[in-house]
Design a protein around this nucleic acid. Structure first.
Lengths: 349, 349
DNA sequence: AGCGCCGGTGGGAGCGCTCTCACTCCGTGT
DNA sequence: ACACGGAGTGAGAGCGCTCCCACCGGCGCT
């Protein structure tokens, strides 16, 4: 490690920032009028408005948000809360996509995005204090588990909030989520349609509703096709590559005759690929594989991965829209949106 | 798309939040003393401190940050600015790792992280206003390009800032970056050491210093080995998988006899793998491949990718440390840290 | 001519906090 | 016994903004 020292910033700090008062003096109007112009009130004459705008430009005036917040009690910040171990953020393209969508949608507002990773009790408590202090106008919460108490806290605080996913079918908060069961059904139907009869699945962590729904969809499609469910065809993963690998090894050991596997995430499918390769099974010749997410990696595996596409980015965008509505109209009814999924067929199945 | 409406939040909003005044009354002391206790001033008697702490707990008092900000002009927020097209955030594990490190290090402070994606002029202007309004205490800036003006703005505003990477060797701001040239040299030496004599490279976008440094390292190692540089051995990518693929195709067309390729990012290496596979070349038999980043994907490619490891997460952490120092002591000298890189050898080279 | 009205404006009040300063009450030194 | 200092405390003064209300003038109406 090399360190170099260079001269400091040389104190380029410019003179004190102008305030409304300064602008008012410059424009020859009162503070009230300046405030009205800044906040786009219609009750200002064209003359006054112009004078103020002029003064603002000349002085380089920028409102002090802290002062504004103090009186309006709005912060113009929304939090994205990710209750996840670092391992996932790192590898799951899901988060990056959601963030992209969120950030995109936020760009047209003047809200900023606070990113909060909650990985342990300490951080959770810190977040609780933060929310209690109402330092954000609203919260986006992704990747919630069924027993997560954060949503309850949000509800109790009367804090506008939108979930990405839901805790259960009777979720009380607003949420946006994908039709997980439907996607899983489509995946398994596809597999069955290609003549596979021993279709296994690698699930996500069942504490997440999405994972449970994907498993349910898998079972439904199996039943539909008249195939008997078997415990040995179900292995549990945790949405990671390593988890997928381990689960695939397990499946191979317990049910060597399987000819297809539906993975509840692309990343787990990548792990499954690796296990299959090591076991000398060919994809899709010996075993057909379908993933879930249709993330970037699905395109670059060998062979390319057939996967259930969920509109992750659109979900992020929609979450923001719902949240904005809820912020604008605090008491409004919760809204719950389910977005369709779609099977993208590639070479792996 | 399905929509369901449920009853609203039922206005669970609790009574008005208590203020210092309330706490003071409850504890039988003055506002000043409460403030001192809250902010951990030593000039408070044990008796008073206890009374205040009691009152705080009873009332569930949480300081109003806006009011505090207004007087201290600190915000307890730092921004992470990512001037990148969405495409990269999505796929590059680099960002996720940096964010993890940053978030980790921030967890032990009471600072929050604002995530700001700057993808076009509009967003850039929005950020400028935001920074000018001093709505953050400091800025972390990653993935800067050489001609980026954001760092200049930061400097001009006297805003504490730390770059991840640098614009050039005589960067004026504080930064943390990896020894890119050294890593590239190590990669190419390794290739040459394995008897490869026609070593190509796929560069990153040369507007980024890191990409330039990796190319420079490649050239140095080649010279060291007495191998002549050839233009046909250099193709330009953009750090994406697709870019890597295109660059590899180009290399294959112009220099079919190449026997190794050093890719300036793992993701581009994945693209190169694909191109090589399609061209019927074996890795590492026909062509040895080395990547850069040693990200998660390096472990799960087929064959696993030899890659230059840069301590991305540690870089994120270190960036925060430098920034905290700079916030604590505004005029302090800039610090510039170069972290070593290391070659992780796997099957691809 | 007089009334009300309404678009437009100015200024006081106050959001909740920290900071500074003056003050009190001790113990200590002479 | 006295002044002296230091530790602890209370209260006033703002930070920069929005909100509210009182106000001003000119218009159309009776």
């Amino acid at each position: 490690m090399t360190r170099t020292d260079r001269p400091g910033p040389g104190d380029a700090r410019s003179a004190a920032r102008p305030t409304v008062e300064d602008v008012a003096a410059r424009a020859g109007v009162s503070r009230g009028t300046v405030s009205r112009v800044i906040n786009g009130s219609p009750k200002v004459s064209a003359r006054a408005r112009e004078a103020v705008e002029h003064a603002v430009a000349e002085l380089g005036y920028v409102p002090n948000q802290a002062a504004r917040s103090l009186v309006t009690s709005r912060t113009d910040v929304v939090a994205l809360v990710v209750p996840e171990s670092l391992a996932r953020l790192r590898s799951e393209p899901y988060f990056a996509d959601v963030i992209t969508g969120i950030s995109d949608e936020l760009a047209s507002t003047d809200l900023q995005l606070l990113l909060t990773l909650v990985r342990n009790e300490d951080e959770r408590e810190r977040l609780t204090r933060y929310l209690t202090a109402r330092r954000v106008d609203g919260v986006l919460l992704v990747s919630v588990r069924q027993d997560d108490l954060l949503p309850d806290l949000l509800e109790q605080l009367g804090m506008p909030a939108v979930l990405g996913g839901r805790r259960s079918e009777r979720e009380s908060l607003s949420y946006v989520h994908a039709d997980n069961a439907g996607g899983a059904r489509a995946a398994v139907r596809h597999l069955v349609g290609r003549g596979r009869t021993r279709v296994a699945t690698i699930t996500g962590p069942l504490a997440m509703e999405a994972a449970g729904a994907r498993l349910a969809g898998y079972r439904e499609a199996l039943a539909e096709a008249g195939l008997a469910p078997e415990d040995a065809l179900v292995a549990h993963g945790d949405f990671t590559e390593a988890g997928g690998y381990a689960a695939m090894c397990e499946l191979l050991a317990e049910m060597p005759t399987l000819d297809a596997v539906f993975c509840a995430s692309d990343l787990m499918a990548v792990g499954a690929f690796r296990a299959l390769r090591e076991a000398g099974r060919r994809v899709p010749g010996d075993v057909a594989v379908v993933g879930f997410d249709d993330s970037v990696i699905a395109r670059s595996t060998e062979p390319p991965l057939t996967s259930v596409r969920q509109p992750t980015e659109a979900m992020g965008r929609l979450m923001v829209q719902l949240l904005l509505d809820e912020i604008a109209e605090p008491g409004r009814p919760r809204r719950q949106v389910i977005l369709p999924t779609e099977l993208t067929v590639r070479a792996s199945a």
